[in-house]
Amino acid sequence: MTTNAVSEDFDAFVHGRGRALLRFAYVLSGDAHLAEDLVQEVLARMHRRWHKVSVMDSAEAYVRTAIVRQYLSWRRRRASTEAIYAEVPEPPGLDEPQARVLARDQMWTLMAGLPRAQRAVLVLRFYCDLPDDEIATLLGCGMSTVRSQAARALAKMRTMLSEGGVDGDG
């Protein structure tokens, strides 16, 4: 493939899948600016070797894996006291606008209280709907680690809810 053809192929990929990658990074990080930075950083690295990436069975899966790893790496360097504000798709069945806002805020508060690896597991499992073996491959760990991280994350979220740590009343 010529350099021009590789560049056009990369541009087509970014144009076609860029918004989905940005949404993925946003749900993973909970921060629109960080999501943009993550995707930009990963795509900049991918551009240099797109000729190798584009011939893989699933170039998008490879790029998503790079985004997850970049996120986990950046989270180690960021302060743990960050505030997360976001807009996410509303769950069905919440008719009152106040109920939707409360549910969204509760979920973001719960997710913000999780360690980065647990949060990544939940996003990959429930947002991306990936099975445990694919999550394990993405994160570079065993399936038992994925299951234990998910169980710990859900248990912590349940504890926070039952203790009233997330009620939306201020």
Rank of each mutant, 00 (worst) to 15 (best):
T2V: 02
D11S: 09
D11Y: 05
A12Q: 07
H15E: 10
G18E: 00
R19F: 12
L21D: 01
Y26K: 03
L28F: 03
G30R: 00
E36H: 11
Q40T: 15
L43D: 00
H47S: 11
S54K: 13
V55M: 10
M56K: 12
D57A: 13
D57S: 09
A59I: 03
A59F: 00
A61R: 11
R64E: 06
I67R: 01
I67G: 01
V68M: 06
W74Q: 15
R75S: 15
R76G: 13
R78C: 07
R78H: 09
S80H: 12
T81H: 13
Y85M: 11
V88Q: 08
D95R: 14
E96C: 10
E96V: 07
A99R: 09
L102A: 11
R104S: 08
T109P: 03
M111W: 06
M111T: 05
G113H: 03
A120C: 03
V123I: 09
V123F: 02
L124Y: 05
R125V: 08
Y127E: 14
C128F: 12
C128R: 15
D129L: 14
P131F: 08
D133Q: 12
I135M: 04
L139Y: 00
G140M: 04
G142F: 03
M143T: 15
M143S: 13
T145Q: 11
S148G: 01
Q149V: 07
A155Q: 15
D167L: 08
G168H: 02
G168A: 01
